[in-house]
Design a protein around this nucleic acid. Structure first.
Lengths: 127, 127
DNA sequence: CTAACTGTTATACTATAAATATAACAGTTA
DNA sequence: TAACTGTTATATTTATAGTATAACAGTTAG
């Protein structure tokens, strides 16, 4: 599991970390029950502060992606990630709306948009 | 053209403003050549500072959505919004990727995702 | 038992971005 | 002339991101 961070990006490091781990799970690079590095070792590997990693872990825990046992350390949720509910679908729509609005303005037709989404979906299926 | 802002949101006001105007253009609620309120009057109407509106206008101008003439004021680009290029498609993919990754984790199948996108697309077509 | 690890919490500091508050300048228009 | 336009400059407040230490409590290997 390699983490790819852009320190020049305006996107917060802890946010990039969250996305990288979620993508790892989606790509089945990280399997249910699999262990993750400790906050200290991961922070040390990446070259960032312990608290930045902890912030990402806490949010991932809160959203059900990982479990944190005092003894076993950090683990990808063995029961799998909680399935999408109405709340998630609502917030997903809220995030998609501005992307589609700008695409409509820039004359990206629906087929091209769908093709792009399909390609991304495929990248998480076939590996 | 009514502006809908959430002052409790963690999303910056100027960003929400940008999205609202882009959605207005996508919905054809704002037509090419149509005038927009001055920075001062819009700021006054919404109850925010002049500079917050100006920041949104400057970014919209930079991305080709609007033109700002010293004399005519602020106007929706009469030639239409610049069509999507490779740069735009690349950044669009970058924004879609984490949304789809999390959806895959939460077992939102591709059809449901596409249906959601299709519904949003339709909301900009039929009005 | 000790030493080294684990997550967790607390505190303090720096840096940056968002938003506001005034003020002024230059050009346009009624 | 007066009232508007976008634009620029400066200063301030607030919130967040990230870092730097330090300590606590529990676990585990030597």
């Amino acid at each position: 599991m390699l983490i790819n961070l852009d320190f020049e990006s305006q996107e917060p490091i802890y946010q990039q970390l969250i996305e990288q781990i979620i993508e790892g799970i989606a790509r089945k690079d990280l399997l249910p029950g699999e262990g993750l590095p400790s906050v200290r070792s991961l922070a040390s590997d990446i070259g960032i502060n312990l608290h930045t990693v902890n912030k990402a872990y806490q949010q991932l825990k809160h959203e059900g992606f990982i479990l944190i046992h005092r003894q076993k350390g950090v683990v990808v949720n063995p029961d799998g990630v909680p399935k999408a509910d109405v709340t998630y679908m609502t917030q997903l729509e809220k995030k998609l709306k501005p992307l589609i609005a700008e695409s409509v303005c820039r004359e990206v037709d629906e087929e091209s948009f769908m093709k792009l989404c399909n390609d991304i979906y495929k990248s998480y299926r076939g590996g």
